[in-house]
Design a binder for these strands. Structure first.
Length: 248
DNA sequence: GGTTATGTTATTTC
DNA sequence: AGAAATAACATAAC
C-alpha cells in the first residue's frame, strides 16, 4: 500500500491522536514490547519516506507498511493486528506491517533531507548521490531509499515518463539537466499523489503505471521487469530516450 | 492454482 | 570478505 505520499496522508489523518495518551496497546504478534506503550502520551507523528514515526517521550515506534500493510483509524480490519493503539478519542490500528522501537534520537537515525516530501528535501544532495552511482540503472536508483526516500514503483514509472527518460539508462549517461528534471518530477508527482489522496474523489490516475497506452503518442507501452530490483517498468520506447555512450 | 502487486531485509551462494 | 542471488514475510485480486 505505501509510497511516500500515502504515509504523509496517514500522518495527517492520524494527527488527531497527537497529544493524546495511549490507553491500551495491543498486538496479535508482538515484535515490540507493547507493554511499555500504555499510558504514554503520543507527542508527535513524523514520517520519513515510507516510514511512519510515532514519537513518545522516551522512544519512537517506527511503522513500515511494507507490501501488504494496512491501517485503520477508528475502525478495524479482519486480519493480523500488528499494533493497535486506543486513545480517548479513538483508535489507530496497523495490520501486517513491521514495527520497531527506536531509542535513539531521530535526528541521528534519519537524514531528513533525503525524503522527497520533506520541506527541507535537499535537491543538490539527491543529485550528487545519484551521480555517485553512475553504473546503476536509473530504474533501480529511483527506488533506492538511501538516495530518494519515499519514491516507490508507481512514482518511479511516472517520473521517468514525465522526464522522458528510458528506465534502462545508466545514471551516469543521463544529461545533467534531464537528471535534474527527473528528480523534480519525483517531488512534483509525490505531492500530486498526496493531493489526489486528499481529494478522495477518484482513484489515482496514473499516466503510464499499470497502463497500456502512452498518453502522448498512443503507442502501446512496454511493460518489463528491469534492473536488479526486477520491478515492473511501464514505458514508451518512443517518448522515453535511451542515451548512448558518446565516444567523441 | 498460479501469478502479480505501491516493499524491505535476512540468509544463502558464489 | 564481499557482492549477488534467493528466500522470506504478509494479503488480495485476477
Amino acid at each position: 500500500m505505501p509510497e511516500g505520499p500515502q504515509i504523509v496522508f496517514l500522518k495527517e489523518q492520524a494527527g488527531i491522536f497527537v497529544d493524546q495518551e495511549v490507553i491500551i496497546a495491543k498486538s496479535d504478534y508482538t515484535e515490540i514490547p507493547i507493554e511499555i506503550i500504555s499510558g504514554q502520551p503520543l507527542r508527535n507523528i513524523k514520517s520519513f519516506g515510507k516510514e511512519l514515526l510515532l514519537c513518545f517521550p522516551d522512544f519512537t515506534i517506527r511503522v513500515h507498511l511494507m507490501f501488504f500493510g494496512k491501517y485503520a483509524i477508528n475502525g478495524s480490519i479482519n486480519r493480523q493486528l500488528t499494533l493497535g493503539l486506543t486513545f480517548e478519542n479513538g483508535d489507530l490500528n496497523f495490520y501486517a506491517c513491521h514495527c520497531i522501537i527506536i531509542q535513539n534520537q531521530l535526528n541521528l537515525v534519519y537524514d531528513w533531507e533525503k525524503d522527497v516530501m520533506q520541506e527541507n528535501f535537499n535537491f543538490n544532495q539527491a543529485f550528487t548521490n545519484l551521480r555517485s552511482q553512475p553504473e546503476k540503472l536509473i530504474c533501480d536508483a529511483l527506488l533506492d531509499q538511501s538516495i530518494l526516500a519515499g519514491v516507490g514503483n508507481g512514482i518511479k514509472n511516472e517520473a521517468l515518463f514525465q522526464a522522458q527518460i528510458h528506465p534502462e539508462n545508466m545514471v551516469g549517461i543521463i544529461p545533467e539537466t534531464h537528471l535534474k528534471s527527473l528528480i523534480k518530477a519525483c517531488v512534483i508527482i509525490s505531492f500530486e499523489y498526496l493531493q489526489w489522496l486528499k481529494e478522495e474523489i477518484n482513484p489515482i490516475t496514473w499516466r503510464v503505471y499499470r497502463q497500456k497506452v502512452c498518453p502522448r503518442d498512443h503507442l502501446n507501452l512496454r511493460k518489463e521487469k528491469l534492473g536488479k530490483t526486477q520491478r515492473s517498468s511501464y514505458f514508451c520506447e518512443k517518448c522515453q530516450v535511451l542515451y548512448h555512450p558518446d565516444f567523441s
